[in-house]
Amino acid sequence: MDAFVAAAIHDAKNSLNALGAWLDEAGRECPSPALHQAQTLAARLSAQLVELLVLYRAGEGTLRLAIDDHDVADFLADTMAELELTDHRDIAFTCDPGTGTAIGHWAFDAYLVRFALLDALRNALRHARSRVALTVALEPGGGMRFTVTDDGTGFPGDVLDGGVGEMAPGSSGLGIAFARLIAARHATPGGRHGHVELANANGASFSLVLP
């Protein structure tokens, strides 16, 4: 990606954030479903631009992760707070912060991992028939796994095979490319790295495993 394009994306992202703030203010003065939709859309676009910029920085060799300890239960609560569940009232969503409490703390870049998970969750909410779940668990050999599952039609074959091709109308594969990058950039001094696992089992299953 060209540096000019990156700079333009950066400006566009900031403008979208400003637009979001104005829509927020307008919504407070005069709440309406259309304003809410516009706000949600502005936030989603801004998030996609952040993902693009992160991929650009990775290509330029300037992406640096900020790894530090985070309370996993707080992290789950913050992630949920950013998810617009009111737009999906027909979907049963489950996430038990108690599982995070049992884990305690984990060292990771909460900002970037949250982007990856929110993308996966929005994707699941879009494709689910009736239910979406977010779980977190420790890996037997070390590591921590976030899993997003839905009961939709599952991932297309080429995506399961590791491609980032067309997933569905309106999906660019950006989210999965971003998640794979962020997971892989998480490492431990012992040499373990994070990764993403995709599977189909009565719907789509997206796992982001942190080392």
Partner: peptide, 28 residues
């Protein structure tokens, strides 16, 4: 901002108690 949080969150001796990345809502 989104581009400087990494410098804050991994600060050495004198780290802030927490950091918040713009934009954020009153609720956050």
């Amino acid at each position: 901002g989104e581009t400087s949080y990494e410098q804050v969150s991994t600060a050495a001796e004198y780290a802030p108690d927490d950091y918040l990345i713009k934009p954020f809502t009153s609720g956050t």
